[in-house]
């Protein structure tokens, strides 16, 4: 029997079926609306970041001082160079993606393969860079002390250069030791001890006359306030209760813990998007190699995954601005 297409007699009418209202395939339209909803999720995070920042507008950390590392340049102050490089890598992988889509329109399989491959490499480099950025942030650089009220105090010399805890602390005989498994029958792991005690820092600070304390409060010109020597000594001896090295979800040597929380959450969520984008790209990449879309006679899947990939780039553009520039 011959296969027949059932004619309803309404094919040429608007409601006759088989109509694409927005002149776009179902999959592509749904990708657009998924992107819209995902964009709203990211906006929620970034707006919440803005909320917290406005709440602590006069004591928020300065991004230039936090993200100033560059691979193989130890101790060199390189504010934002690395993030700028990451941004370029992501924009470039967006370009190779759009070139892959373009090659797909012309059914040039080999070109699609090459461009998809470059896109995947770019994405992988970006995720790796983000991991490195996280590592530096978690490890910290100079260390700081925390007051009873949860304020962060940092140390500077009289020229305003930051001074690390290890250059301040004197060695005192310590009575506290970390509780280990072998020392007790009932073992409950405690918090690891910081490298220095508060007393060691206080002693060292008193011996080095050039040291001053820098608080988180921003001056009119947008710099952190540096206390006088007397005020510094007073603050250090009266209010300080702990040492902070690096950043985690509770303590953050760069300033407000909220800054660290939002950093981990937003760049983490974005990094997760990049990671899943890379995975989806790899799947499509193998489909292209296997000739799936050659047989299907269109490369629309490449276009759909391309939309997602550009969206990841789009989000990064905003994260870059609000975390590193503004």
């Amino acid at each position: 029997m011959e296969t027949t297409v059932i004619k309803t007699g309404t094919d040429d009418k608007t409601w006759g079926g088989g109509n694409e209202p927005l002149k776009v395939s179902y999959g592509k339209m749904m990708m657009w609306f998924f992107i819209l909803s995902d964009a709203l999720t990211f906006s929620g995070f970034l707006a919440a970041y803005g909320f917290s920042r406005f709440k602590f507008i006069n004591s928020w950390p300065i991004a230039d001082e936090v993200f100033n590392h560059f691979p193989f340049l130890h101790g060199v102050d390189a504010p934002m160079y690395y993030v700028a490089l990451m941004t370029f890598i992501l924009i470039f992988s967006s370009v190779t993606m759009v070139l892959a889509v373009d090659a797909g329109h012309h059914m040039k399989k080999n070109k699609v393969i090459i461009y998809m491959f470059l896109t995947i490499i770019g994405g992988a480099i970006f995720v790796g860079s983000q991991a490195w950025e996280w590592k530096n942030f978690i490890k910290g650089e100079y260390g700081a002390v925390e007051t009873k009220g949860g304020q962060i105090l940092q140390f500077v010399d009289n020229e305003g250069h930051r001074v690390a805890l290890k250059d301040i602390a004197v060695t005192l005989p310590s009575v506290r030791v970390e509780h280990e498994n072998k020392n007790g029958i009932w073992y409950k792991s405690g918090e690891g001890l910081p490298s220095y005690t508060v007393e060691e820092i206080q002693q060292g600070f008193m011996q080095r006359k050039d040291l001053l304390i820098r608080t988180q409060i921003l001056t009119e010109s947008g710099e952190k306030t540096i206390l006088s020597r007397e005020a510094s000594l007073d603050k250090l001896n009266k209010d300080v209760i702990g040492i902070v090295e690096g950043a985690n979800l509770r303590h953050n040597e760069y300033g407000s813990p909220l800054f660290a929380n939002f950093f981990f959450f937003i760049t983490g969520f974005h990094g997760f998007h990049v990671f899943s984008g890379v995975i989806i790209n790899i799947i499509i990449f193998f489909n292209v190699i296997l000739g799936t879309y050659e047989r299907r006679k269109n490369y629309e899947m490449v276009e759909k995954v391309g939309l997602y990939w550009h969206f990841v780039d789009l989000v990064w553009v905003f994260v870059f601005t609000f975390f590193y520039l503004v």
């Binding site: 819209l36 964009a39 709203l40 906006s43 929620g44 707006a47 919440a48 803005g50 909320f51 917290s52 920042r53 406005f54 709440k55 602590f56 507008i57 006069n58």
Partner: peptide, 21 residues
């Protein structure tokens, strides 16, 4: 849709953040 909702959210949250400050 995106622009409208994002502008609304930003307006609400930043106003509130400034008030708490």
């Amino acid at each position: 849709t995106g622009i409208f909702l994002v502008c609304y959210l930003i307006f609400i949250l930043l106003t509130e953040g400034d008030y708490i400050y």
